[in-house]
Design a protein around this nucleic acid. Structure first.
Length: 305
DNA sequence: GTTGAGCGTT
């Protein structure tokens, strides 16, 4: 299958718009969303059954129902029952509606047996409902499990059920809890830039751009080199950025955390107490210390906030 | 090559 245009409309009876496919014949959801903001998928009326059918959507990529898209008119899906156009509301509330009223969040799974794998977790929690993310936290050097992990369900009801009981996993009782990192909402700040934590090394700027396009126009993606497990994404609209803050989003199967690009304290790797200690020991005359401070400034550049 | 309350990224 090759590059083509598929016909897309907001309603079956509305005049369709032609939207380009990719070279492999798939269509990016972001391409649809560029013309129909807030779109979360496509459907079409099957010529055979006369029923509406959903178009397969995997990782932001829409796949043709048969060998090709044909001449069908594809109708835009909007989240839940919200069929209003995005321009009838502000961007922030649109994203909230798009994301549903009851957001699911990552759950920490405590007490895992050392031998339990992510596949084990997926198999176990899959009996409760659809699972969209599992992680087993491991020592980066040895690969040994740290005995805890994370799980994320599609449905909020599933999450509630999972938290309401203990879990026997590979012979041990485990608990699902809301992680401490979700304790309080992030402070609001009017920035167009968000901090994307827990990035994996295989995420490219293009992929991040493709992913975040679904929420609004992306003006910049910055991934520090060498790899530091985080990125900055800038939106054209600060309300879009703000609406995502505090969210856990799943990119390529990994849960990333969105927070403000300018937290109160950038003190994880360079705590101020660390500097104070150094300064007190070597009062103001260490070239290497100055160089280190320079690096820390570079790693948290004000130009990226 | 161990262990058994915790907490993922800046």
């Amino acid at each position: 299958m090759t590059e083509c245009y598929i016909r897309v409309a907001e309603d079956e009876n509305e005049e369709p718009m032609e939207i380009p496919s990719e070279e492999d014949g798939t269509v990016l959801l972001s391409t649809v969303a560029a013309q129909f903001p807030g779109a979360c998928g496509l459907r079409y009326r099957s010529p055979v059954s006369q029923c509406m059918r959903g178009v397969r959507l995997v990782e932001g990529i829409l796949h043709a129902p048969e060998s090709d898209w044909g001449n069908l008119v594809y109708v835009v899906n909007y989240p839940k029952d919200n069929k209003r156009k995005m321009d009838e509301m502000d961007a922030a509330s649109a994203v909230k509606i798009k994301r549903g009223v009851q957001k699911t969040s990552d759950l920490i799974v405590l007490g895992l047996p050392w031998k339990t794998t992510e596949q084990d977790l997926k198999d176990y929690f899959g009996t409760f409902g659809e699972v969209i993310m599992v992680q087993v936290k491991r020592d980066t050097k040895t690969g040994n499990s740290k005995g805890f992990g994370f799980v994320r369900f599609t449905e909020y009801e599933t999450q509630v059920k999972a938290m309401s009981q203990r879990h026997m996993i590979d012979g041990r009782w485990c608990d699902c809890k809301l992680p401490n990192s979700k304790a309080g909402p992030d402070e609001p700040m009017r920035s167009r830039k968000v901090f994307v934590g827990r990035c994996t090394e295989d995420m490219t700027t293009d992929e991040l751009r493709q992913f975040f396009m679904q929420y609004g126009e992306v003006t910049d993606v910055f991934i520090p080199k060498p790899f530091r497990a985080f990125a900055f994404v800038t939106f054209a609209d600060d309300q879009v950025a703000q609406s995502l803050c505090g969210e856990d989003l799943i990119i390529k199967g990994t849960s990333v955390h969105i927070s403000n690009a300018e937290p109160k304290h950038n003190n994880f790797f360079f705590p101020s107490t660390f500097f104070m200690h150094l300064f007190s020991n070597f009062p103001g005359r260490s070239p290497s210390l100055a160089a280190m401070f320079e690096r820390s400034q570079y790693q948290f550049p004000s130009s990226h906030v």
